[in-house]
Write a protein that binds this DNA or RNA. Structure first.
Lengths: 200, 200, 200, 200
DNA sequence: TATGAATGAGAATTCATTCAT
DNA sequence: AATGAATGAATTCTCATTCAT
């Protein structure tokens, strides 16, 4: 028999969304193991039984969430069309991109941080994140190929990885540190950092 | 009530070291919650009671380990005397530094990753890592001040933070990705990235 | 975090009652520390998890039990209306009262004895018993005030304390000793003791 | 081989005494199960190994202590020679006796309370306390027989039990309650209570 | 005699998950 | 669809006691 329900009626859809939101909040704050299924159900206003009607287990919800949320970085990159920025200074283009990703942080960073720590212990989570990172890298590769003649990097693939990691990790760190003391110069410095690296 | 033992006899010292090593291996692989105290004890070849004689609980051991291991980055930076590199190309100096930190990864990265995910849930862990990051930043500030006239950054403090995070996070990510397919160009690209950012 | 269950369904109510009865039996026989939660659960015919669904911990159940059972002495005193005994010999009234309390012993004494030993170590238990003793004293004060003109005590409050303790402690001791060799004269002697003390 | 040591040298004697005192303090405050052997040893300034050189186990020390301390009530009674009080008012004699026992409380009551709770679970402890209570009763019987012609009790043995319990339990309760608010009238009331019961 | 390191059985407690209603 | 009572495996941690030194 089919285990988890695929909601058809509107009520079911709403219920599932409420669980997803409650799960996002809890997992972001306390991670997979720090959150218990009862409290997700309670926060969603449903019974524990209902939780298990919609999700095979706690981990399944976690995985759906990292797929959704950590995938947002790629979405932003995909939305970003280099062609729209013809004629602009490279540094400004980079800065615009960094700003776009910066906006994601609250909804991506905490969950991402928790997921990263599970990679070594959970092959499926590792695969998901690795695929997301690779997708980001490939997308950045395309972008770099579009401005290939302006680049001064030795190896474009390595450069794409580095820029991807900076976008993810350094911006995340910056974001956390800035929660404490906001530093408006950070985006400018990051734009300098990336554009000086890539462009002559 | 009963405090943890401060080993007096040599035997006790040895036992404590064995537990520390076993804990490092387990925590690095499976994190704080993925590891249970019995298996640390078993791996150290001691009884569970002995484990609790030396450590209040597994979190205490985890904390001692992140203090030791994550502090190694700072040690490397402190060892690094800019004066010894007078007359060398800035990029070469940066590359040397990056290589020195690169060597730490196996003993720092996995544990660091696990600890990072716990920051939001554990104020003490957060404090320890925050202090380590600040110490790294301050050390980098000193280094940058020593070559102040060659720099082209807008704000030295922000630059120190950025370089610190790149050393920690980006190199860690690079290291993990390279476990799969070693990329010899990575250190060169990283050296380019950092030196182009800092120096004209 | 997860609170104890407030049973909604009838099944849950029944389960909670079974745990309470099993706890009473075990605690009465072996005290708080001599009883373990598994055996209460087993005796109640439920799993250990169910036990903890209804009670935060075994101490919580213990406390609920002493509140219920040790409060019975006060209930008996409250039920006892002096007005109903107008014109009877004081000694007979006292004897009737003592008999009423005597009947409680099996359900009060063993648990009470265990609780008494914990007073010094557990402020909450101390508070509960102290409040019960004070309530008994105040009730006895009322009774004594009703027959004030017949009394020959120096200080009515002290007398109320003494009579309360005799009812609790001496009758308890008597009861235990009599488990071994029943002594039918005990109630008579106790009635003499109390009535000669109070009345001329 | 003989397990526990019978100290011969003075040093050993001193060590044993220090353990006994430390055990008395801990057991009085926290009971048998609330005290752990390490803390007794620590308080006595000896190692845990030394503790077990002198006592088979924790319970053995507890038993030695209740034998010593709870036996003090009988000692007081034995010291009390009725012949010395010829010609005095019975109430005054009773009052003198009660005062003598009252003085014991700090060193007897807390431990006694803890021991009482263990009677049902530990036959040896039960036997010891029962023997002490019987000895007290027999001693009181002797006293009562000495003033037999003045008594107005129905059954002298029952009376001896009652007076014994009052001395132990009621005075203990009174003592505890009075730790909070000292009531100088208590001894007088108790003297009234006992003397009115016994004497015409 | 004295020490204190080591032991491990045992107790408390949690929580993901199932299933009868 | 939804509920929430029940389960019990898994884990943490304590402490009485032993024994090699």
């Amino acid at each position: 028999m089919a285990k988890t329900r695929n909601p058809i009626q509107e009520r079911g859809l709403d219920t599932k969304l409420r669980i997803i939101e409650a799960g996002f909040a809890s997992f972001s704050r306390k991670g997979l193991h720090g959150t218990n299924s009862r409290e997700i159900a309670a926060a969603a206003g449903v019974s524990i039984g209902t939780f298990y009607t919609y999700f095979k287990d706690k981990r399944q919800l976690f995985i759906e969430l990292i797929q959704t949320h950590c995938g947002k970085i790629l979405e932003v990159l995909n939305t970003f069309q280099v062609e729209n920025y013809q004629g602009q200074e490279p540094r400004e283009v980079v800065r615009t991109l960094i700003c776009a990703v910066w906006a994601l942080h609250d909804s991506v960073y905490p969950l991402n941080q928790k997921a990263m720590a599970l990679r070594q212990m959970d092959p499926e989570i590792d695969r998901i994140i690795a695929e997301q990172e690779e997708a980001i890298m490939r997308r950045l590769m395309l972008v770099l190929q579009g401005v290939q003649d302006k680049l001064r990097v030795r190896d474009m693939e390595t450069a794409a990885w580095l820029v991807g990691w900076i976008i993810k990790e350094v911006m995340f760190s910056a974001h956390r540190a800035n929660l404490k003391a906001d530093n408006p110069q950070l985006l400018d410095e990051l734009a300098d950092l990336v554009s000086r690296y890539l462009f002559a």
